[in-house]
Write a protein that binds this DNA or RNA. Structure first.
Length: 501
RNA sequence: CGCGGGGUAGAGCAGUUGGCAGCUCGGCGGGCCCAUAACCCGCAGGUCGCCGGUUCGAGUCCGGCCCCCGCAACCA
């Protein structure tokens, strides 16, 4: 029975169109999903869109559409981007889908039965112009800045979740490592939040209409954050067909950006505990991009549009470049102008050129026929793979990229030291050895590249005559000598044509 | 004293348990000619934010200070 691996991205709020941050999270999740599939595990990779809430309803109205139409259109934008980026998600959940709504109802009923929900009163400032609650801090001169009206104080009956009852248990799980928050700096942050203390929170809204009705009181709608988190289990059929749920839950990793860590590291585990379910194993929060040292924001106009970037550099390069900018997990600064430079140095001059020169030599000196096996790098390669696997297992995608880059540089150096073009004149036995080692080295390079740049990897493997490699998994594939003597290899088109800038 | 992150070569970043400061890009000088004017070798460039402490030894541990950023306050 294969090991399972369940990886998720957050579901993205349809109120906005996809930006580079959404792409970053999703690509990272895809890399993990593809790596674990390559390793022979049974993978479930989930992403989707979060579609309820007052804001969506407002945006829909402003666009003169029904909320459902608005959601359909915006959700499709995310799906289209993921298609362009070759994201290999196994499911795409939409919170407006009926199976999600049914799963949410089942979950909330369970919380209610467990005694984790009580009725309370929510008091807030309500702006009739907004038709929504606003916070005191949003007020300008005591008035709603959008409508220039003073808000009313309204008391609304709400249902609350007994968060406080479950906090000690959450703390325990964090301390024991059963629930891991990564990177460790985020773990500290969560501990800080717990130290500050948190209150029970409201799980419903009376004033909001666009949402999922509470199963035990249909005058109220489930607070959007509460039902959004449940996507991770409803997508597995929780509350309906429990087969997938039994197989894949708990999640091996919830991936997200650092801004929503509180919901995932505290609220979500607490709700799961209340419902008697297992908590996820790892919550991984990566950092934010700054662009030229500044926060990315619409008002500054420095937002990087993923579609434009793909148009310029191609999906494969975008995947690679985003993940190799800075350590996965940390914040990092990005210079838009740097993408082209790095494309040229890493991809065109690096991987692309290496593949090109090796295949050209195999073709020119040996008529494209793979020579007899040589084992010069058998041990070396095993060591490289160990580093690669360790990096991936620790979710250090940037380190995995580093391992690949080092191997590519090593291969370029190997060529220079042995000068196959000279050997072709003097020593055919030695030439055959060197070319075999290079071709086989390329096969390993492609395999390591696969999670990050799947199309490129496949192109390289096809050039090496490896057409059915996907039928095997890593333990076999990563063994030295997979390339058989006599295999025909062909030089293809340049993988990454150099960009003039 | 709200919480958290960070200040290391011109730029962007690594530095696991304290043990000679590293990587990539860029700059400069050589080499090579298989390759996408790509590749390889070498060189230059750093008071590791500041002050103090612990130690045989501190970028790394402790205390204080300065500066930047994120969250709290619709964004991954």
């Amino acid at each position: 029975m294969a090991k399972k691996f369940y990886v998720t991205t957050p579901i993205y709020y349809v109120n906005d169109k996809p930006h580079i941050g959404h792409a970053y999270t999703t690509i990272a999740a895809d890399v993990l999903a593809r790596y674990h599939r390559l390793a022979g595990e049974e993978v479930f990779f989930l992403t989707g869109t979060d579609e309820h809430g007052a804001k969506v309803a407002e945006s829909a109205e402003a666009a003169n559409k029904t909320p459902q139409e608005f959601c359909d259109e915006n959700s499709a934008k995310f799906q289209m981007l993921w298609d362009r980026l070759d994201i290999s998600n196994d499911a795409f959940i939409r919170t407006t889908s009926s199976y999600h709504q049914q799963g949410v109802a089942a979950f909330l009923n369970r919380l209610k039965e467990a005694g984790a929900i009580y009725e309370g009163e929510y008091q807030g400032l309500y702006c009739t112009g907004c038709e929504n609650f606003i916070t005191e801090k949003e007020l300008v001169d005591g008035k709603c800045p959008n409508h220039d009206k003073a808000p009313q104080v309204i008391k609304e009956k709400n249902y609350f979740f007994k968060l406080k009852d479950y906090l000690p248990k959450v703390k325990e799980l964090l301390d024991s490592g059963e629930l891991k928050i990564l990177p460790t700096s985020r773990h500290q942050e969560v501990l800080g939040l717990l130290r500050q203390g948190l209150d029970d929170f409201s799980i419903s809204r009376q004033s909001v209409k666009w949402g999922i009705g509470l199963p035990f009181d249909n005058r109220q709608v489930t607070y959007v954050w509460v039902e959004a988190l449940q996507n991770y289990i409803t997508a597995l059929g929780y509350g309906q067909i429990d087969e997938k749920f039994a197989k894949f839950w708990p999640a091996d990793i919830h991936l997200m950006a650092k801004d929503i860590i509180k919901f995932h590291a505290i609220f979500w585990p607490a709700m799961l505990l209340a419902a008697g379910l297992e908590v996820p194993k790892v919550i991984f929060a990566h950092g934010f991009f700054t662009v030229d040292g500044q926060k990315m924001s619409k008002s500054l106009g420095n937002v990087i549009d993923p579609d434009a970037l793909i148009d310029e550099l191609g999906a494969e390069a975008v995947r690679y470049l985003l993940l190799s900018q800075f350590p996965f997990g940390a914040d990092g600064d990005v210079k838009a102008s740097n993408f082209v430079i790095q494309y040229n140095s890493d991809l065109a001059n690096g991987v692309g050129n290496l593949v090109s020169r090796v295949l050209a030599m195999a073709d020119k000196f040996l008529a494209g026929k793979t020579p007899d096996q040589d084992k010069e790098f058998a041990d070396e390669m095993a060591g490289i793979w160990r580093q690669y696997r360790e990096a991936m297992a620790a979710f250090q995608i940037d380190k995995a990229v580093e391992v690949i880059k080092k191997w590519q540089i090593f291969c370029d150096g190997y060529i220079e030291r042995h000068k196959p073009w000279a050997l072709a004149q003097t020593n055919n036995n030695q030439l055959a050895k060197v070319i075999y080692n290079l071709l086989e080295a390329l096969r390993h390079l492609a395999l390591m590249l696969y999670p990050i740049m799947p199309i490129t990897a496949d192109k390289i493997l096809i050039s090496l005559g490896q057409t059915d490699w996907q039928a095997s998994s890593l333990p076999d594939l990563s063994r030295w000598g997979g390339l058989k003597a006599g295999t025909k290899v062909v030089k293809g088109e340049a993988l990454f044509p150099r960009l003039e800038k």
